[in-house]
């Protein structure tokens, strides 16, 4: 898991109180409450009380809509990496190669279905996606990720042993950012990842 470095991290916070939201947005709590009550900031009240709660996605939307810098929410240097491959030895290899790097937090999936579930919860910064999966192919996974607004900034690198130029073009059209052929040089893979993530 990534490190906190003693600072308050909003990275994994999913629901915010009005006070937390005010702190993130660097405005007064009253302003947040006003916006909440007027409907400009969507949220819910805790059942059985009047406490206001704001979901993370809505807060990010609000901040972007009002041009408030949102990097504070993602302020952590640690990049979440989702590895999707049906070959356990490849997963193990990549975990060993990337997971050891402190800049990355790694989770893995061995099917397209698992990958879909994990992208929702894990919200990866980058997905290393094998093209040939047992249930659905990489291009479909790629398309699903791109369809999710919450994952708009996620980067996708297709990793495959059998992809021809036509398929690479197709994957690019469906939202893949890069393609890397198996077998690969680990240092090159990491370089590509860091380039894409501006790390």
């Amino acid at each position: 898991m990534g490190k906190n470095n003693g600072q308050k991290s909003w990275a994994e916070k999913q629901v915010f109180t009005t006070g937390e939201a005010a702190e993130v947005c660097k405005v007064s709590q009253q302003t947040i409450i006003r916006c909440f009550d007027s409907g400009r900031l969507q949220g819910f009240r805790v059942p059985g009380s009047r406490f206001r709660r704001i979901p993370r996605n809505e807060l990010i939307r609000f901040m972007r809509a009002n041009e408030i810098p949102s990097d504070v929410l993602e302020a952590s240097d640690i990049k979440r990496v989702l590895i999707v491959d049906d070959d356990p030895e490849i997963i193990e290899l990549l975990q060993d190669a990337i997971g050891k790097d402190e800049r990355f937090e790694v989770k893995t999936a061995s099917t397209g279905y698992d990958a879909g579930l994990l992208t929702e919860s894990f919200k990866p910064h980058i997905v290393l996606l094998d093209y040939m999966l047992p249930d659905i192919n990489g291009n479909v996974v790629c398309e699903r990720i791109r369809a999710n607004h919450a994952l708009a900034d996620a980067r996708i690198i297709i990793v495959s042993g059998v992809v021809n130029q036509n398929e690479i073009d197709e994957l690019t059209r469906r939202g893949a950012d890069d393609f890397i052929k198996k077998p690969f040089r680990i240092d090159q893979l990491i370089e590509r990842m860091t380039n894409l993530l501006n790390v």
């Binding site: 490849i90 290899l93 060993d96 042993g161 059998v162 052929k181 198996k182 077998p183 690969f184 240092d187």
Partner: peptide, 18 residues
Amino acid sequence: AAHEMNNPLTVISGRSQL
């Protein structure tokens, strides 16, 4: 062959690099 061989080759290559 590309599909069946490139995965083991990836493991060999990756492990030897590590």
